[in-house]
């Protein structure tokens, strides 16, 4: 059986201008005036992704590994539609639930109850859906006693629990997860891992970024190793992870 494509990444490149901060400042303008004209500064550029091609099929769980700044999060943001790639395009077939940074939509001054509605709306849920699932969200987050407390008084673990519960209440076709399973206490970590597993077994396609190779090997079937914006290796999770682990060991741990 040929599986249908859920996410198709066509020759995507992403450029950042590192000098963007300075471009408009008056100080820089004055400095430039007194500079000889020929030494026009070259804008420092940084390619976070270079000519990336990927084809992720329905139901696949793909893990992304690589060092900091390899382009993992940038890629996920492009798939989520937060950023537009400089070159190339991304086709997404199905609804996406981005869990890139949990609780980004919270207003710290509002109570947990109010934030469930606000954050749900941010994620594109309808009013009926949130009202329907309200108890489920509260129950999963185990924050029943704190519903009327402003979120600014929550501990970071509590915020993450609430956010995870809101984000996973729907069954999205594509789930984007960036380094979030390390939230909450051990009990909640196990619970959220279970929730992820049940979503995966329900046929959700998952793009998963983590620095924990164990959790990637545990959850994913395939893995992609990114380095400096390019795919180093793509394939079966065990092979890629062991290659990556070996690379890290050889290159970084030199005593």
């Amino acid at each position: 059986m040929k599986k249908e494509t859920m996410v198709k990444i066509n020759d995507v490149s992403m450029r950042f201008n590192l000098g963007i901060e300075k471009e408009f400042s008056l100080k820089q303008w004055f400095v430039d005036i007194f500079k000889p004209r020929k030494s026009k500064k070259v804008k420092p550029e940084f390619w976070a992704l270079k000519n990336l091609n990927l084809d992720i099929k329905k139901g696949e769980v793909v893990g992304f590994v690589g060092s900091n700044g390899a382009g993992k999060s940038t890629l996920l943001k492009i798939v989520a539609g937060v950023m537009k790639p400089t070159v190339g395009s991304v086709d997404v077939y199905g609804n996406i639930c981005p869990m890139i940074e949990l609780g980004a939509g919270f207003d710290p001054q509002l109570t947990a109850r109010e934030n469930i509605y606000l954050n749900g709306a941010v994620l594109g849920y309808s009013k009926e859906l949130i009202e329907d699932k309200f108890n489920e969200i509260v129950e999963f987050s185990e924050l029943k006693d704190f519903l009327e407390v402003p979120v600014q008084n929550f501990s970071s673990g509590m915020v993450a629990r609430l956010a995870f519960s809101i984000a996973t209440i729907v069954n999205p076709e594509i789930l984007i997860v960036d380094e979030i399973l390390s939230v909450g206490d051990i009990g909640f970590q196990a619970k959220s891992l279970n929730k992820m597993r049940s979503m995966i077994s329900g046929g959700t396609t998952v793009l998963y970024v983590s620095h924990s190779l164990t959790s990637i090997e545990e959850l994913c079937q395939k893995a992609i190793w990114l380095d400096k914006g390019e795919v180093v290796d793509y394939g079966e999770v065990k092979t890629v992870c062991s290659k990556y682990a070996k690379y890290v060991k050889d290159n970084h741990i030199k005593i």
């Binding site: 989520a80 937060v82 890139i100 980004a104 939509g105 941010v122």
Partner: peptide, 9 residues
Amino acid sequence: FTLINKVYI
């Protein structure tokens, strides 16, 4: 900004 940078709206 925190929202715009994280979720598509």
